[in-house]
C-alpha cells in the first residue's frame, strides 16, 4: 500500500531519485507493453502468409515452411531437414508421404526417390515477409477506393467544419446582435444531442435529401459541432477588439476582417479543432454504416468491418487491411505527436 502511495504522490521537482521513481518507471514500461504490443503484434502478423498465420504456437516473425523447386516436378515442394538416420543433416524436398514414410527428393540430384521415416523429418523454416498480402489487397479489392472515400470525407468535412464553425464563433465573439446569446445557448444545448440519439431521424433526412450512399450524407450531419464553436469562440474572445476596429478603419469589409484578421490569429484553436475533426471523421463508424450501404462508397472502417464478416477465414488480408487503415493515422501521429497531445490537453482543460 505504501508503495502505491509513494508512487501516487511523488512528483516533478524532486532532486533525489528514490524507489518510487523506479516504481513509476516500471508501471509505465508495463503500460507500454499493454498499449503497444498488440499493435506491434498486428504489424508483425500482417506480414505472415496464410499458412504461417495458422501455425500454433505463433511466432513473432513471419517464419514459414520453406519450399523448393525441383527439376522435373511441377510447382514447389516443401523443404525438410533430416534429423536422424544415415542422411541426417541433409535438406530434402518432400514429394509425398504415405503412412509413416515420406518419399524425398534431393533437389541437387532429383533422379532418385529416398524413403525416410516421417518422424526423422522437420520442416525447414525461413523468414518470409508476405508482402503479397498488401499487394493482393490493392489488386483484388478496391482498397484505394475505400481509402479515397475516407480521405475525401475527412478532408471535406474538416474544411467545412473549420469554415462554418469559425464563422459562427466569430459572430458570437465579436458582434452584438439581438438573439446572439440565444443562438449561443442553443448551440451549447446541442452538446446534449449526440449522433446516436438522432440516428433514425437523420436517416430519414438523409433519405429525403437523397444523401443515402453519398459521401455528403456522411459529411453534412456532423460539420456543425458545438464543441468546435465553443472552442473557437473562447479563443476568439482573447483577440483584442482593437484589431477588428483597426481593420474596420482600414476599410476592410466584415468578411475580410473575418478571413484576413480573425482566422489567421485563431490558428492554434483551428489546429486543435482540425485534429479533433480528422480524428472523428477518419474513425467514424456508426453513422457511415447507417447511411452508406453500397460498398463502392464505403469508408475504410466500413470496408474493414464488412471484410471481417466476408473474410473471416482470410486473416492475412484482414490484418493487412487493418494495418493499411491505421498506417496514415500512425504516420501523422509520429510527426505531430507533440502538437496533437498538447492541443488536446489544452482544449480538455477548458
Amino acid at each position: 500500500m505504501s508503495g502505491l502511495v509513494g508512487m501516487l504522490t511523488a512528483r516533478r521537482g524532486r532532486l533525489a531519485r528514490d524507489w518510487t521513481d523506479w516504481a513509476s518507471l516500471a508501471y509505465l514500461l508495463l503500460g507500454v507493453l499493454v498499449m503497444f504490443l498488440p499493435v506491434l503484434w498486428l504489424f508483425a502478423s500482417s506480414l505472415k502468409s496464410d499458412q504461417a498465420l495458422n501455425a500454433f504456437p505463433p511466432t513473432f516473425l513471419p517464419w514459414e515452411p520453406a519450399q523448393v523447386a525441383v527439376p522435373g516436378q511441377p510447382g514447389h515442394l516443401p523443404l525438410m531437414q533430416v534429423t536422424a538416420g544415415p542422411l541426417a543433416g541433409r535438406r530434402l524436398a518432400e514429394l509425398r508421404h504415405i503412412g509413416l514414410m515420406a518419399q524425398m527428393l534431393d533437389p541437387a540430384r532429383p533422379g532418385r526417390v529416398l524413403p525416410i521415416p516421417v518422424r526423422d523429418l522437420r520442416p525447414v523454416l525461413r523468414l518470409h515477409a508476405s508482402w503479397s498480402n498488401f499487394t493482393d489487397l490493392v489488386r483484388r479489392f478496391n482498397f484505394f477506393g475505400y481509402f479515397w472515400n475516407s480521405v475525401l470525407i475527412t478532408t471535406l468535412a474538416t474544411l467545412i467544419t473549420l469554415l462554418i464553425n469559425s464563422m459562427a464563433a466569430f459572430a458570437l465573439s465579436k458582434y452584438r446582435f439581438a438573439g446572439r446569446d440565444a443562438v449561443f445557448a442553443l448551440m451549447l444545448a446541442t452538446l446534449m444531442v449526440p449522433p446516436t440519439i438522432v440516428l433514425v431521424p437523420n436517416f430519414l433526412i438523409a433519405a429525403r435529401l437523397d444523401l443515402v450512399n453519398s459521401i455528403w450524407g456522411v459529411i453534412w450531419p456532423g460539420v456543425a459541432t458545438p464543441t468546435g464553436v465553443f472552442l473557437l469562440r473562447q479563443y476568439m474572445l482573447t483577440i483584442p477588439d482593437d484589431l477588428i476596429e483597426a481593420a474596420r478603419m482600414d476599410n476592410a469589409s466584415e468578411w475580410r476582417i473575418y478571413w484576413r484578421i480573425v482566422l489567421p490569429l485563431s490558428a492554434p484553436a483551428l489546429a486543435v479543432l482540425a485534429i479533433f475533426s480528422v480524428m472523428w471523421r477518419w474513425n467514424d463508424f456508426l453513422w457511415p454504416m447507417v447511411v452508406l450501404n453500397r460498398s463502392s462508397v464505403f469508408t475504410l472502417p466500413l470496408a474493414l468491418f464488412s471484410f471481417q464478416g466476408d473474410l473471416q477465414t482470410q486473416w492475412h488480408y484482414l490484418l493487412a487491411m487493418t494495418v493499411l487503415t491505421l498506417l496514415p493515422v500512425t504516420v501523422i501521429f509520429l510527426f505531430l505527436q507533440r502538437s496533437i497531445t498538447q492541443g488536446i490537453a489544452s482544449a480538455g482543460v477548458k
Binding site: L163, I164, N165, M167, A168, F170, A171, L172, K174, Y175, R176, F177, A178, G179, R180, V183, L186, M187, T190, V198, N202, I205, W220, P221, G222, V223, A224, V229, E254, Y258
Partner: peptide, 18 residues
C-alpha cells in the same frame, strides 16, 4: 451587429437540419 447573423446562419442551418 446584425451582420453577425450572416456568419451564424450556415452553422445554425446545419444544426437545425441535423
Amino acid at each position: 451587429g446584425r451582420i453577425g447573423w450572416v456568419f451564424v446562419v450556415p452553422n445554425l442551418s446545419v444544426f437545425g437540419l441535423f
